[in-house]
Design a protein around this nucleic acid. Structure first.
Lengths: 246, 246
DNA sequence: CGTATTATTGATCGCGCTCAAGACCTGTGG
DNA sequence: CCACAGGTCTTGAGCGCGATCAATAATACG
């Protein structure tokens, strides 16, 4: 279930403590009084699947946490070649403290609910709330690690390994814990291709190859199942030794 | 001139104010009293070209700033495929606050001088010094932008564009400002290939192609000249409109 | 239904990889 | 001073993976 009910939003609006990402987002380590100050400057906004949230260089008057759904960050060359540079899932942060513009195009891959904070007030709060600043530093360093992991994929992995790696990331974030998985892919074939530095045709071919090898199941356009995560790890060119449970 | 004299090190050791990266490194925004506390936990260390500073997963008992020279961060797959994920030049920061181990292999590309801080003390200082924490956040966000820029290169640029882009980055960091450039490349062909997701043969071919096109000059193994940065921008698939001066 | 969008599958092409040989550069010892 | 060794770099020949171009199939939607 990707979307959030309007009635739920009413609930979160009043109390951050009821928020599904309360303990994972940028506010995770905030004390009750700090949370209250965040509540004062937040507002929820739903973006429909396919909508552009911001273009490269646009003024971005807010920072935000992804509450539900999936958004993407991407950069393009003048001739239209496009590379996705970030995949934003619930609890991920949007915005660059200290900058007033978006560095990347931000797009809603599915319907997305954001918890938006007015930019100036958020930065003031950041400066006066060490809990918030240190949490944001941790999250930024995690993003940096993820980006560098992706550089290894883009520079050195084969098409098959790339596709398997992306499926692993999506499956693990959408459905943590052990056991067989059955999820809805939040991305089109083309969005996957943009993330992997491939074409949509190649993504499609590798998906059917993985299916024919019995590693995954495909139902309809977006359905994905995987009974044996270890096999998917193997196809991704990683050994999931320490991560068997995830 | 990449290296730093031993007599210079004596000078910096006593006074951060004499340090060449004083106003660009993690300590850039520190007040005199904060600087004094950093001075108390710092020590300089020189690593020879080719030396391994840390392996992936090694305990890393320090954080550090690069004072002079060039170091690289890289990740590898089990079968040996290697991808460089960071290029560290003077003023860049090494270390992951909150983690005690290195996430990447750290290698000295040239002789490198580090200003090392003992990890635990540095983290204590980080927690009690907002100036230091906010500077580190800014630097981490800049690193994240650079990593994402590199993702675009790895996923979507041609070999020629990749090589030109790398030369641009090196030239601009080694010799800021306008005018003809003449520098020493800090990287071997193989290191460049690891950064660009190519082979050393392809890097070599593209370098000679750029030379034959009159865009760069190559002297000896490491010498590089470029009279027309705009032409190099063009070959890199970017328009250096706003960056003509750099 | 008809139309538009997205996904699959096929045929062919070309960029960058692989394998291999030779050139160049640096240091070492006779 | 030269001979030799070991590393780095360059250049060539051929191949294969993923891109490109194109046609068809599946799905969503008014």
């Amino acid at each position: 279930m990707v979307s959030v009910m309007a009635t739920d939003l009413q609930l979160y609006r009043e109390k951050c403590s009821a928020c599904p990402i309360r303990h994972r987002a940028v506010c995770a380590t905030c004390e009750p009084d700090e949370l209250a100050r965040l509540e004062a400057i937040k507002s929820y906004k739903v973006h429909r699947a396919g909508a552009t949230i911001a273009l490269e260089g646009d003024a971005l008057p807010f920072a935000a946490s992804v509450v539900s759904g999936c958004a993407t960050l991407s950069r393009s060359l003048e001739d239209g070649r496009r590379q996705m540079v970030g995949l934003l899932m619930p609890s991920d942060f949007i915005g660059r403290p200290g900058h007033s513009t978006a560095a990347y195009e931000i797009t809603a891959a599915t319907d997305v609910t954001l918890c938006q904070f007015r930019r100036m007030e958020f930065e003031d709060l950041l400066a006066s709330t060490p809990h918030l600043a240190s949490r944001l530093l941790q999250m930024s360093l995690d993003e940096l690690d993820a980006a560098r992991e992706w550089m290894l994929l883009l520079g050195r992995k084969t098409a098959r390994e790339k596709v398997a790696s992306l499926l692993l990331i999506i499956v693990r974030r959408a459905s943590p814990g052990p056991g067989p998985k059955s999820i809805e892919l939040p991305l089109t074939r083309e969005a996957m291709a943009d993330y992997l530095g491939l074409t949509n045709e190649t993504v499609s071919r590798q998906l059917t190859a993985l299916r024919k090898d019995g590693i995954i199941g495909l139902t309809g356009k977006r359905g994905l199942t995987c009974d044996d995560l270890a096999a998917l790890f193997d196809a991704a060119g990683e050994d999931g030794d320490g991560a068997i449970l995830t």
